[in-house]
């Protein structure tokens, strides 16, 4: 007889030993622990759900919830990730995902779904959030005039919106999610990015851009600044994250599209912050 229960931090050791460690041996316990002790606070206490068989965890789904401001509206966003169920209990796997399907009082995202999970959530009404990665190729154009670029600790906090100040604090302990501020004559644009590779091509992948129109007059300056800091990198991002950026760029399809469900919001403004992408650089 199994029982579905809300996850609490004290369940970490049991869930880690039975389900998470075998899932990805390259992840350390400290990495997995972030799902149970998220680096940010939220009004929504939900951490996820576990399926127990006589107190032994046989299934787990993580929900990374955060309070965000989307187009000036306070919204709770819960990112569904890490859905794992012991094979003999797979028939009950859906019970772990149903809160992400039923609740309409918050936004749910599914950013790194496997193809099979993408199919299930699509059938249950999730919409496509993004399916393309835009790559801005390095080119011999000078940076825009009058643009300043600040990295990391040099970012003037006074130029950040309150929501970005909170995001900045919440993600400060994640070493692979780097911070940069692009200051143009039109205003400041706060960016979090990670260094990745796509088919051996080094990328600076922008994961959060605020506001999303903020790089219209500063993309080339950002490209040059990233070039000076990290060497030859292609600047890339989910297509929705940056509006009005100058070319040239090319788009490639994501292997599996990102998904969104629950409460309706302007989805272009949902970034990859506060998710497993931010925690693990995946």
């Amino acid at each position: 007889m199994t029982e579905l229960v809300p996850v609490v931090p004290a369940m970490f050791d049991a869930i880690h030993d039975h389900l998470l460690r075998p899932l990805n041996p390259r992840f350390t316990p400290e990495m997995w622990r972030l799902l149970f002790h998220r680096p940010w606070t939220s009004r929504e206490p939900m951490l996820g759900f576990a399926l127990l068989d006589k107190d032994r965890p046989v299934g787990f789904a993580s929900y990374l919830c955060s309070d965000q401001e989307i187009e000036g509206r306070a919204v709770t966003v819960c990112n569904f990730n890490t859905w794992v169920v012991d094979p003999p209990y797979r028939a009950q796997a859906m019970s772990l995902a149903m809160p992400a399907v039923k609740r309409r009082d918050m936004v749910f995202t599914n950013l790194t779904a496997l193809p099979e999970v993408h199919q299930i959530f699509s059938r249950l009404g999730y919409r496509e959030l993004d399916s393309r990665v835009r790559m801005h190729w390095p080119f011999p154009a000078l940076p825009e005039r009058g643009v300043r670029v600040h990295f990391g600790h040099a970012i003037p906090q006074s130029l950040l919106s309150p929501a970005d100040q909170e995001l900045h604090r919440a993600h400060a302990g994640l070493p692979h999610l780097l911070a940069v501020l692009v200051e143009t004559p039109e205003g400041a644009c706060y960016v979090r990015y990670s260094l990745k590779r796509w088919r051996r091509i080094p990328e600076a992948r922008l994961q959060h851009v605020s506001p999303r129109t903020g790089l219209a007059g500063g993309m080339r300056a950002l490209q040059w600044a990233l070039f000076r800091r990290h060497g030859r990198v292609v600047v890339s991002h989910d297509s929705r994250l940056v509006a009005d950026a100058p070319g040239p760029f090319t788009d490639r399809r994501m292997p599996v599209a990102r998904l969104v469900g629950g409460a309706r919001v302007v989805t272009e403004s949902l970034s990859n912050a506060y998710s497993e992408i931010a925690l693990y650089n995946i």
Binding site: T2, L4, A91, Q92, M94, S95, K102
Partner: peptide, 9 residues
């Protein structure tokens, strides 16, 4: 849809 929340066996 409520059937997705219970043990299907």
């Amino acid at each position: 849809m409520d059937l997705l929340e219970v043990d299907p066996t």
